[in-house]
Amino acid sequence: MAALAERHPGLAAWFGYIRRIPWLAFLLLYTIVTGGPFVWVALMSLRTTNEILDAPYALPSPAHWGKFAEAWTASKYGVYFWNSLIVVGCAVVLLTLIGAMAAHALARFQFRGRKALRLAILSGMMVPPQLLILSLFQILLQFGLYNTLAGLVLAYVATQLAMTIYILEGFFAQLPQDLFDAARMDGYSDFEIFWKITLPIGMPAIATTVVLNFIILWNEFLFAIVLLTDDDKRTLPLGIMHFMGAHQLDIGMIATGLMISIAPIIVLYACFSEIMIKGMTAGAVR
């Protein structure tokens, strides 16, 4: 066969394809395995629980678009969604500001105790959440921040700060010192330099940390379940879990909730897949 293929180049390509069939099949299969469940949930989100239990893998006919409105209001996914947005939004803004300021200081200024400070803050990356959460719970109780969105924001800032500083400092440290000297010669103060030079030039790194923090916090579960109890304060993951635990398992409504929860990420992903992939893998590629 090899000899035959040698004589007929077209045939060689054919044999090449045939040899590749198992491999191509695997590619297809794995794509279905990763993407399929999301398609399935999307279909279920348009069907009622009874329809789903009758035929779990059928197409939605008719499509109950009204379920989204119902989920948003009656099932309070709207409340959960806004809670998530507020908490994650505030935490990401605070993280970016506080993290960038600290990273700027660590990267730009020479001062006594700089190394110790850097090591201390970055050691925060090594702290397992379990070590934190038990007493963070007590501390937030003391500060009157337990069961408040503000408390959760602070907890989120605390957990993600080390990594944010780590990524930003790595980037800021590579910026040439001359830029900052030039800005000083141009008459700008340290704060203005931070605002007008570091932040705009550091945008790629900042975008990375924003994406990373947004996704991680949007999906966060452990701190939310420990630090929030009010139904009205639940974030999306908690809201969905609440439905999972209810007596009567409303699969259809949970599926709708899942779609509401993953939709922002999917939409962002469709538009900014490269940035999001880069963001999510930022800490790992060195």
Binding site: Y146, N147, H247
Partner: peptide
């Protein structure tokens, strides 16, 4: 009246009661 599901109620109580909330 705030309505809960059982696990949620219990964990809410477990944390809220000691805090005086």
């Amino acid at each position: 009246i705030t309505w809960y599901e059982k696990d949620g109620l219990n964990s809410a109580l477990r944390t809220a009661l000691p805090s005086g909330q």
